Simulated scan of single mutants.
Amino acid sequence: MRARGLIWTLPLVVAAGVALWLWMSGGLDSLAVWAAEGQREAQNAIARGVRAIKQGDPGALAGLMGVAFLYGLFHAAGPGHGKLLIGGYGLGRAVPALRLSALALASSLAQSAMAVLMVGAGLGLLAWTRTQVTGLADGALSLVSYLAVAGVGLWLVLRGVRGLRRPGAACGHAAHHDHDTPHHHHHDETCPTCGHAHGPTPAQAEQVHSLRDALVLVGAVAIRPCTGALFLLIITWRMGIFPAGIAGTFAMGLGTGLVTVIAALASVWLRRASVDRLRAALPDPATAARIAAATELAAGALVAFAALSLAIRLL
């Protein structure tokens, strides 16, 4: 029993170690610096591309799409809430790779759409200045986005806690079990003695949990539009070539989405290579269910910790 306890608490220990490392070392600061430098170079190229479109240069629009896509790649390569949320969810929940990848791409494109709506409404309807639009994105919307991501993390923590309690309760009917009589549990069946299912079947675990989950994930990422997209949209609005800005913004979204999809696939692979293999190797479905719940709790705690750390920096 002690060995089993160590097994299902291991994800919590790993999560605590990662959180401590992020806190003490500053995380991926070198990657953030590299990505920021790449974004600045791409932003200068975007400005040149917009001027070329305004001057009617042939091929300028295609060039802008390529530069905007690269900007999205650099933007997504640095620390960000999209990869944090999608990757954490993929580690914490058993989600098919294709489905999580679709959510990753949808969240990036929704972020682009949010930028278009924000600039269109801010400049066109409210007559805001560039400073007001970017100030809202960098201030209030950034804070709301990080808090929303932290909320998803805490939601995973809560579900993990419930999952840890459920298997123990399901298998702890001392009054109804004859402990002198051995009985067997199966991962894909109910217990023949007590009639309870002590853990989800593999097919159940692969089901998407709900449309609500998908909307929450996409919404938490889309709340805060990309600064580069706002920059592109504002200058194209002022130059009278706003459709080119919209096209470039969605090209950015595809670049960001590519990196986020890679993060999604990596999280699914990591879960299958570690947690799912360990669960499959265990003969006791109750212990397997505890490992899944502990992993969800740990992933949620990491997401919440990282998002709250980023939110605190804005205060």
Rank of each mutant, 00 (worst) to 15 (best):
L315Q: 11
A298I: 06
A32V: 07
F305W: 13
A127F: 02
I223Q: 03
H209R: 15
R271T: 08
L125A: 12
A229N: 04
A60Q: 01
V152Q: 05
A110C: 14
M65F: 11
A140W: 12
K54D: 14
A137R: 03
S112A: 15
A299Q: 04
L6H: 06
A3C: 03
G124Y: 08
I235M: 13
C191F: 07
A169E: 14
R51T: 10
R271Y: 11
T260I: 13
A68W: 04
V259S: 01
T181R: 15
P167E: 04
A106F: 10
A62S: 09
R51K: 12
L158G: 09
M65E: 04
H198N: 07
M24F: 07
A102S: 10
L61G: 03
L211V: 14
D188A: 13
I223A: 06
L105F: 14
H187I: 00
G168R: 11
L233Y: 10
P79E: 07
R159G: 08
L117Q: 03
P167K: 01
G17Y: 02
G219N: 05
D180T: 13
A175G: 15
S107I: 00
L141V: 11
Q132S: 10
A298W: 05
A286Q: 10
A292T: 09
W8P: 02
R165M: 14
G27D: 05
G72F: 09
A203R: 13
V268H: 01
R224G: 01
H176R: 14
P192N: 01
C226R: 03
A97V: 13
A169I: 04
M114N: 12
T181W: 11
G163M: 07
A77S: 13
W21A: 09
R93E: 15
W237S: 14
G49F: 00
A16P: 05
A47L: 10
H177E: 12
V157F: 08
H184D: 12
R166Q: 15
H179G: 05
Q132Y: 02
G228H: 11
W23F: 11
H176D: 15
